[in-house]
Amino acid sequence: MSDGTQVSQDEKEIHMKHGESGGPEPLTFTHNGEPATINLERFQQQPQAEPLTFTHNGQPATIDLERFKPQPQAEQPAPVEVKRPVAPKPLTFTHNGEPATINLERFQQQPQAEPLTFTHNGQPATVDLERFTRQPKKEIHMKHGEIGAPRNTGDVGVAPVPEVGSVKIVILNGSRQIDQVVPGVGQNGAAGWQTQKVLGENGLPQGIYQLSSANDASKKVHPQQFGGQVLHVDKQNVYQFGPSDGKGKSTVVKHNRKIFDQALDGKEPVVGQCYEVSYARGVGKVKGELSQEEGAKLQNRKVNKI
């Protein structure tokens, strides 16, 4: 050494001993103007390296070897695969001999609603919003409009089954469903309701209307006038909404189809259209079409009570 400082034998061994291949790089530095090396491999296998102490220029010195240990690499989290919802395929079927399609995407299950929490009279309270997002299974079934599906007593909107051939009109979920009592489709082979057609609602109010309970307008001898929408048309009769029953529900009246054929030159009455129909001594006459506003005014007259 150029300054004549004495270096111990152990220190020289530390300085001059090189690491084996594959281990950490030796620590090189200059000591008293001369290159020196410390083999760090001997400290690699220890769980925690002890500080290296030695004497430098007659003073105690320490090298913290912990910082030279290889640091474990943090494991990278596996990428999370995001599953995107797949829209259901449209339901295709044949209706009245023509291809038809129902978009099922709007019937997909909605995400669960979080409860609404608030304070009521100084106490915490919760409202379960999930009950407002649920749809009855029968309503969803009716939306799909399975033509020919038998409907029995106990189903939604189904009262005790009337006689065979009876018809009812179900206006729900944007559709007009025509049901008829058919032999052998009910429980235990009895007569039951069966859907015959599913059509557009044509602006008709929602409800379930039994045509068998419609009032025959020709049976009244007093003057009558009607201006409601046509609910249904068959070969013999035209069914029209009559005045309110006093309980907020519209009545249904039926007219002989012939009076419409005469007034409309054989054209079929339009379901959903308002018509003015008047009676005198049981004889009916169709005067023409009305707007819904005009029909409502005519229906509200006292002469309409039946």
Rank of each mutant, 00 (worst) to 15 (best):
D128N: 15
L129K: 10
L129H: 10
L129D: 10
E130D: 13
E130K: 12
R131V: 15
R131I: 14
R131N: 09
R131L: 12
R131T: 13
F132T: 06
T133P: 05
R134G: 07
Q135Y: 10
Q135F: 10
Q135D: 10
Q135H: 14
P136M: 11
P136I: 08
K137L: 09
K137N: 09
K137R: 09
K138A: 13
K138I: 12
K138M: 12
K138Y: 13
E139F: 09
E139V: 11
E139A: 11
E139Y: 09
I140Q: 11
I140T: 14
I140F: 09
H141F: 06
H141Y: 05
M142D: 08
M142G: 06
K143H: 01
K143V: 02
H144A: 09
H144Q: 12
H144V: 10
H144C: 06
G145W: 04
E146C: 09
E146K: 12
E146Q: 14
E146F: 15
I147E: 11
I147N: 07
I147S: 06
G148L: 03
A149M: 13
A149S: 09
A149N: 06
A149P: 06
A149V: 07
P150S: 04
P150E: 04
P150V: 00
P150K: 06
P150M: 01
R151G: 01
N152V: 15
T153I: 15
T153A: 13
G154D: 05
D155M: 03
D155I: 00
D155A: 09
D155E: 10
D155R: 01
V156D: 12
V156R: 10
G157A: 10
G157S: 09
G157C: 08
V158A: 14
V158H: 03
V158K: 08
V158C: 10
V158Q: 12
A159S: 14
A159V: 15
P160L: 14
P160C: 08
P160R: 14
V161T: 15
P162F: 02
P162K: 06
E163T: 08
V164W: 02
V164N: 03
V164P: 05
V164F: 02
G165M: 12
G165Q: 13
S166V: 07
S166I: 02
S166R: 04
S166M: 06
S166C: 10
S166N: 12
V167M: 03
V167Y: 04
V167G: 00
V167S: 05
V167L: 02
K168S: 07
K168T: 08
I169L: 01
I169D: 01
I169W: 00
I169G: 05
V170R: 02
I171A: 00
L172N: 07
L172K: 02
L172C: 05
L172V: 07
N173C: 03
N173P: 01
G174W: 00
G174A: 03
S175Q: 11
R176G: 04
R176T: 02
Q177A: 10
Q177G: 08
Q177I: 13
Q177K: 12
Q177C: 06
I178H: 10
I178T: 15
I178E: 11
D179K: 04
D179W: 08
V181P: 02
V181Y: 01
V182A: 04
V182Y: 03
P183F: 01
P183G: 02
G184V: 01
G184H: 06
V185D: 00
V185C: 00
G186S: 04
G186C: 02
G186D: 01
Q187M: 12
Q187E: 15
Q187G: 10
N188Q: 15
G189E: 03
G189Y: 03
